[in-house]
Simulated assay, not measured.
Amino acid sequence: MSNPKVSVIVPIYNAEAFLVPCIKSVLTQTLEDIEVLLIDDGSSDSSAVICRHFMQQDARVTVINKENEGVSATRNLGLTWARGEYIAFLDADDTLIEQALEVLVQTLEEKQVDAVFANYFYHYNEKKIYRGPRIPGGIYPVTEIRSQLIDDGTLSGILFGSVGAALYKKELIDQHHIRFQEEVALNEDGLFNVMYLLQSSSCCYLSDQHIYGYRKAIESVTSRFQPNKNFDSATIAIDRYCQPISQELFLEQQLRRRRVSISLWQALNICSEENPASYRMTIRQLKELFGHQELQGCFPYMEEEKMNRYKRFYYQLIKKRRTHIFYLMTRFLLPTASRLVKR
């Protein structure tokens, strides 16, 4: 029995609400030569039952049950099990358009690149919002985009920050032992892409192909306060991994830019409606964040003229330490502004 063309790895944890449309979107792909690895990360809902149902209905489906360890460990297990020539990832509450895998495979093979990144859209309940391109579509030698892989100075974070809407070569992943870093809880997708691309020659970006649907509820970023959210773990891992080629990457410049991007994410988190801190304490936290000496030294590395108007506005609030305006903007003009800032 020959190996499938694509292994689709789906990490699952308590995803019963959206799991059926997710799995159906894979099994109805126009590219049929696939295997679907449904990896249940210790769910306590009916996710495992749903997975078994699909495995009984379609021989391409394999169900793997494991104890709860988190999404990175779950994806890594999928990489160990995968038999496909290529690897694709899909989260359990997201979907693919019918032609997604066909488009990715055809592009990778025709363009002779090591990875393909397409674009995606957001399901906001009944609405679809299409993500704008980070860079123009086309083929890129990795040496050409190294200086913006980690942060391009526009408050947008890692250039390819998601493993959804992407296709990778299994051979390259195995050859260089590329895995998700299980100690990194934020930006683990982007870190994987940085590690993969630094072992690649070229990639293709399909800026106008929105093939992957992220499911988002219409709610403000402020409703998802996480007091212990670790914004620095990915930066530490990136620094450690990239040091051997730091000069070619302009690593110091990119990490300084990332420091500003992280400060924006931290500030949005601080301003959450669920943050129990008083108004006075929240302002004090913002002042401490915006006034940090290390942050102040990072502003000259930013590319303000390339930011969209929403990010430019927030950037100016951080740079000028306008804590009260930042708080009021985030609390009372969300969700619209924050969604545009975070994309």
Results as ranks from 00 to 15, higher is better:
I50C: 04
P227Q: 14
N193A: 10
T222Q: 10
R258V: 06
K306W: 07
E35F: 10
W265G: 00
R309M: 07
A73T: 02
E252G: 01
N76L: 02
Q254A: 15
I9R: 05
C51E: 06
Y130V: 09
F160K: 07
R257H: 07
P300E: 07
H324R: 14
N14S: 13
L172P: 05
Q56W: 01
L79R: 00
P133A: 15
P21Q: 09
R321F: 02
L149K: 14
L197T: 08
K320S: 07
A59Y: 06
K111I: 03
F192V: 03
Q199M: 02
N275A: 04
L286F: 06
S207Y: 04
D33L: 07
E35Q: 14
E182Y: 00
R83F: 02
A88T: 08
S220F: 09
P136D: 14
E288K: 14
G291M: 12
R134H: 09
D152A: 15
L249H: 12
P4Y: 12
E85A: 13
N230C: 08
A17G: 06
R343N: 09
N125C: 02
A73R: 01
Y314L: 15
L108M: 14
P21A: 10
N193T: 07
D94Q: 01
S278N: 06
L31G: 03
N14V: 03
G132T: 13
L317C: 07
S263K: 01
A92G: 13
Q112L: 04
F180H: 14
F180C: 04
A234P: 02
L159H: 08
P133G: 11
A277W: 04
Y140F: 15
F326N: 05
G42C: 13
F180E: 04
I12E: 05
